[in-house]
């Protein structure tokens, strides 16, 4: 894949990708932007291996999700409670419009979080979510329903 083609595809997909990462990081813009940039650089370096008939968006999200998981394994700010991260970092949404949602999402296990966000925000199928999260569609379905139940409980409190 040429660099021009890569930029063209990324330009079309960068907003959904950043939106997904922002929600995945519980609204922490600084961290989500770091992860997005890292993921895009990784994707660029691996773009020679990309097979054209494969969905670019799914491939990109898969890299981004892996980058996010790598990031969470490092001992740093994502281990802190959400309030501290928000105070310490730049707010993604100045109006605090999504504060309740971020708080609720932040309490979900990572895999349920990814399944809920990819299905309900990005509109992915179970199969695509399974590809992105390196899982299987049945497990994704279970995580999704479990995640939604948990989210509902958290938001009811």
């Amino acid at each position: 894949m040429t660099r021009e083609r890569f930029i063209e595809l990324v330009t079309a997909e960068q907003e959904p990708l950043r939106r997904f990462l922002l929600a995945l990081c519980g609204g922490d813009r600084a961290i989500s932007e770091d992860i997005a940039q890292d993921a895009l650089v990784k994707a660029y370096l691996a773009s020679g291996e990309f097979v054209e008939h494969y969905k670019f968006r799914t491939w990109l999200f898969k890299i981004a999700y892996r980058t996010f998981l790598d990031y969470t394994k490092r001992p740093h700010r994502l281990a802190e409670p959400l309030d501290e991260r928000i105070e310490g970092g730049e707010r993604a949404d100045a109006t605090f419009r999504y504060e309740a949602l971020y708080h609720a999402i932040d309490q979900l296990p990572e895999q349920s979080r990814a399944a809920v966000l990819l299905y309900h925000i990005e509109g992915y199928s179970f199969g695509d979510i399974a590809t992105i999260t390196h899982s299987n569609p049945i497990a994704v379905r279970q995580r999704l329903s479990r995640g939604l139940r948990q989210l509902k409980k958290i938001l009811e409190r």
């Binding site: 990324v10 960068q14 939106r19 895009l40 650089v41 949404d93 419009r97 999504y98 949602l101």
Partner: peptide, 27 residues
Amino acid sequence: TLKAMLANYQPNLGDSDKYISNLQRRL
């Protein structure tokens, strides 16, 4: 309500052109 909340999630991500030009600089 919850599904609608998730479906309507449209945070402000800033200037896309600036983002792409930053990415190009990095590339």
